[in-house]
Every structure is written in structure tokens, then in C-alpha cells.
């Protein structure tokens, strides 16, 4: 049973330390952290500010490197990859959703969604087609030609999600995806993430402060002072 689970793990974090240096000060953000996330899980990661949630998310997404320990994502040791290979791995396997959407203001929703596809060998027509499908999945086909400033917060976040899923990644990393949205828009985004998890089998890790958002996940973990637990620590 254990072996079966291990073979179906999307994320295996083992003994990960993350240390930041600020001048002469050394800050231990994560210390000897272990974490396993099975394929197809929707995990919510909660914890107080500065607890290391986003740092852990960045490490799993290959945006940062651990000071110690190993990171195996989808069966691949990403902590050993060169910068170029890590970038290629991110492009292929990871979709990122940010709190403040991080869309290019000078590009239309369609062009924003197409961005990750620029790194593929797809033709222009194929890129356009796939971006249209991604926008359709998030319910924004009718806003494809609009620029971010012409979209509401919820629509911008849905565009961000379309950008994250356009390459059909296996892992979606969401850093407070509803943190900048009102309740209604936030719920719509959570509905969408749940649908992507249940209908398309995406493994999702969502960092959030919102207990209602975390309730949508299949499992919630709490991070405090660099350590994980299944229960919130006051």
C-alpha cells in the first residue's frame, strides 16, 4: 500500500531547509521539511504570514532552490536541474496562479494566455487555438480581445488561470488566488479550481489565508515556523 502511494506521489519533499541571509542575519524559513502530495490532490496550505507557505510553493514550482534536501516532482529531482533545464521543466509541468494576477498590461487576454506557448514549437494558429480553448474553459471566450485594465479582478484571475493551464501542466500552484477578490469572484475562482482538480485531474497546491477557500481543498496543511502540521497552531 505504501509503495503504491509512493509511486503515485506528485510531490515528494524530503528534508528541505530554506535559509535566507539578510546582511549578517540568517533566517531559517523552512527546516527539515517533509511533504508528500499524491497525484490529483487539491491541497490547501495555510499558516500565518512569514511561515514559509509561499517559499514552499516556490520550491515545489522550481522558482527557487532549497538550501538543503531533495525535491521530487512527478518523479523528477528538480533540485539538481540546471537553470535552463529547470525553466524548461517549469514550462512543461507547472502552472502558476498569482494573487495579483501578474498579467502583461499591454497584451490582450488572448495574448497573455498564449505567452507560455511561445516556448513551444506550436504554430501561430495552434497557439491561438489552444489559448482560445483555455479561455473557454475559464469562461472568458467573449473577453479574449480585452486588455487586463478592461477586465474585472475575477476576470483577470480567470485569465491568469487560463495562462496557467494552457500548456496542460500536471501541477497547478496557486498563491492566494482569491486574496485580491471579493467573496463572489473568489468563489467563482474556487469553483474553477475545483473543476480543474476533479474533471481534469490537476494536482493543485493552493496557499491561502482564507479558511473558506481552504475548505474547498481535499486536504489542508498548516505551516508554522517552517514546520508542517495537519492542525492549525495558534
Amino acid at each position: 500500500m505504501t509503495e503504491f502511494l509512493m509511486n503515485h506521489m506528485m510531490v515528494k519533499v524530503r528534508g528541505v531547509d530554506k535559509i535566507f541571509k539578510r546582511g549578517s542575519e540568517v533566517i531559517h524559513v523552512l527546516g527539515g521539511l517533509d511533504l508528500s502530495i499524491p497525484k490529483g490532490e487539491f491541497l490547501a496550505l495555510m499558516g500565518p504570514s512569514g511561515s514559509g507557505k509561499s517559499t514552499l510553493l516556490n520550491l515545489i514550482g522550481g522558482l527557487d532552490r532549497p538550501s538543503e534536501g531533495t525535491l521530487e516532482i512527478g518523479g523528477k529531482r528538480i533540485d539538481r536541474l540546471s537553470e535552463r533545464k529547470l525553466a524548461a521543466w517549469r514550462a512543461r509541468h507547472v502552472g502558476l496562479v498569482f494573487q495579483f494576477y501578474n498579467l502583461m498590461p499591454v497584451l490582450s487576454a488572448q495574448k497573455n494566455v498564449e505567452l507560455p506557448l511561445l516556448l513551444t514549437k506550436l504554430s501561430r494558429a495552434e497557439r491561438k487555438k489552444r489559448a482560445a480553448i483555455a479561455l473557454d474553459i475559464v469562461g472568458l471566450s467573449h473577453r479574449a480581445g480585452h486588455y487586463p485594465r478592461q477586465l474585472s479582478g475575477g476576470e483577470q484571475q480567470r485569465t491568469g488561470i487560463a495562462r496557467a493551464i494552457v500548456t496542460d501542466p500536471t501541477l497547478l500552484l496557486c498563491d492566494e488566488p482569491t486574496g485580491d477578490l471579493d467573496r463572489k469572484s473568489g468563489d467563482e475562482i474556487l469553483d474553477l479550481l475545483q473543476a480543474l482538480n476533479k474533471e481534469q485531474g490537476k494536482t493543485i497546491i493552493m496557499v491561502t489565508h482564507d479558511i473558506h477557500a481552504a475548505a474547498r481543498a481535499s486536504r489542508t496543511l498548516y505551516l508554522n515556523k517552517g514546520q508542517l502540521s495537519t492542525e492549525a497552531v495558534d
Partner: peptide, 16 residues
């Protein structure tokens, strides 16, 4: 800065 970081996050290399 932020947008360039996003480009890198979605897979653009440093050289790119």
C-alpha cells in the same frame, strides 16, 4: 521587474 519574473516563472530562461 515583476513581469520579467513572471516570464521566467512560466519558463523563459535567463538567456531568453
Amino acid at each position: 521587474t515583476n513581469e520579467l519574473a513572471v516570464l521566467k516563472a512560466i519558463g523563459f530562461t535567463d538567456r531568453g
